[in-house]
Design a protein around this nucleic acid. Structure first.
Lengths: 344, 344
DNA sequence: TTCTCTACTGTGAACGCTCACAGAAGCATG
DNA sequence: CATGCTTCTGTGAGCGTTCACAGTAGAGAA
């Protein structure tokens, strides 16, 4: 009479009705068991549990979502070509941090890639159709139309890093880039260095802008003149670090320290300096940023600024869930940490 | 009277009803417009289009899915720690290939990570609850419980690479690893090499097993004795390639060629050989596998076996969609391509 | 004219679930 | 014994959509 688990076959899955009949209770009671079990007698609870096990029932989330208006899942949206992120160690930490933080609430995370314009359209539609309750946005560059669109559609949204183009109406969580940069440059100054170069990040990203700002602020405080020949830009890649270092050596041969806005770029910088016969840190002190695995993989190990990626991810999730719960957008800025190693 | 696009606010989104009223037609007509526009008069079509634009309507996919039983999205499931994949260039090709192939059908792809046991439970529940129509599974290792679970639940499933543990009831798309390995080893033999070493992949993966099998087959054909000292295993990582090469050099100093089951490992092998003062290819010819970016990034450029990742992804999508459409599971094996470069 | 066919439109009835409400049962209190 | 309170249970309505079906109008054929 009872049918065994419908292995293989493609028959209709059991509904809450089937479970109710099997357990000898009503739909309502089954639903209550499913949603926390309040106001359910022990006997009913047990009968329902057994019936669920016997029928192999799983709730149909479409039906549930239709009425609750919730999907109980959140999206992790990348609006740039994936490779950029996948090769970034910080990204992996961020992603697994978010996954874990959400896991505590039993919420699955869906990674959505929207590298092309076409993809963005499709994904935006998917999101606004209510398939996720909120979005964790990782898109470093400014002028991202997706963020604006989602915000307009009223989708709860938390960005990683301050979105440049948007107003203050969108939540974000960011490390205190400027303060981190200040710590590093202040450290270099305290070592007696005065011809301090900088390889910035892309200047259309908040990180790029802020870290450069911190650099300039400290020089101003210290009464050191800002020399444009000591400032070059990169794109956070190792290769751009090499290019930047070569440019700096050519433009300012008397450079005695360099602040590099990412460890990956610093890796490239170190390679070029060593090739050029410069001793690190004796001739040129090198400061990185991120405290990524690259920082310790390299010789000499990098003095760097640790970004609190673990806290960033948990904060992003916290703010997003709060916003889904109806709270207003919020900005969270987290402190960075100075890590002294051998390169300075 | 008409309300402007509800920017910012959190009010109820418009339903198909609102659109129908706005356009002066019935729900049915709006629905027909939404689903291809057959049996709709030009006048109605236009009125509905206008109404949709005016109200900013987007279909509620939960409601649609509830009745159609479809979610019009597919999942891309990783059942292993993410890092393994993210740092693998093949993986990126595969992922974007699938995304593109699905885009042609206007189907969004959801990347789901299930590295931990807990995650796996959550994701399995999510999938079986009908949130995706099918799953593209990437899990190289055998004995993956998720695949079995999904298959039992009747979820359309296509694996990348032959799943070892499972029966023939699950679809998969794979490159012809054995044949590719045969091509490479035959090439080495044709160069006159007889002491041919091999660094295999993990032997609990189909790739690891098959490539080793191809190696042994060719040696048997060529009448060359299989020497266990010439066989070591790696895990596809660069580091394991280095370790493997060191072991081989120690165990079989007379080795005159080595077939390495991945380009990344081959990179490590090359480094060790050069450090040991061996000339490649003069002293030792090196053959890789994958034709990944690493193959050309290295000196000398690697002779290798190209895996047809672009075709693999399109085939995976094709098979999955067919299966969602009701067809039976299928296995697809794609030919590899021999690429001659400077390392042999 | 009358009939058939095609192109189009509107209307219930689902889909599987949750929610609000009404009611029953048990128990203590007045 | 009625009253109120708490705990538990069942029922109907409805979420927003598609689908099947019935129906209308107009064109062409008999």
């Amino acid at each position: 009479m009872t049918m065994s688990s419908n292995s293989g076959g493609r028959r209709k899955p059991p509904t809450i009705h089937d479970v109710a009949r099997e357990a000898g209770v009503s739909r309502g009671t089954v639903s209550r068991v499913l949603n926390g079990g309040h106001y359910v007698s022990p006997a009913a609870q047990e009968a329902v549990d057994a019936a669920i096990r016997r029928t192999g029932y799983v709730v149909n989330r479409h039906a549930r979502s239709l009425i609750t208006g919730r999907s109980d899942s959140v999206g992790f949206l990348l609006t740039e070509p994936q490779e950029r992120f996948f090769e970034d160690p910080n990204f992996n930490v961020l992603l697994s941090g978010c996954t874990q933080a959400l896991a505590a609430h039993d919420i699955p995370l869906l990674l959505m890639l929207a590298g092309t314009k076409d993809e963005r359209r499709r994904i935006t539609r998917y999101i606004t159709a209510g398939h996720v309750d909120g979005v964790l946005l990782v898109s470093s560059h400014s002028g991202d139309p997706v963020a604006e669109e989602l915000r307009e559609a009223g989708v709860p949204l938390v960005a990683c890093g301050k979105p440049i183009g948007l107003g203050s109406k969108v939540s974000y969580v960011a490390a205190d880039d400027r303060d981190g940069a200040r710590d590093m440059v202040r450290h270099l100054v305290s070592l007696g260095r005065r011809r301090i170069g900088v390889v910035t990040g892309p200047l259309d990203t908040p990180g790029g802008v802020e870290r450069l700002a911190g650099y300039k602020e400290v020089l101003a405080e210290a009464g050191v003149e800002v020399d444009e020949r000591l400032i070059v830009s990169g794109d956070y890649s190792r290769a751009s670090g090499e290019a930047g270092a070569e440019r700096l050596l050519a433009q300012a041969p008397d450079m005695d320290a360099v602040f590099v806005a990412s460890d990956l770029m610093a890796q490239g910088v170190l390679a070029v300096l060593q090739r050029a016969g410069k001793r690190v840190p004796e001739d040129i002190a090198v400061g990185g940023f991120d405290d990524s695995p690259a920082a310790t993989a390299v010789t000499p190990a990098l003095t760097t600024i640790r970004q609190p990626w673990d806290r960033i991810s948990t904060e992003m999730v916290r703010v997003l869930l709060a916003q889904i719960g109806g709270e207003d957008p919020a900005a969270v800025i987290l402190p960075t940490e100075f890590v002294r190693r051998e390169s300075t």
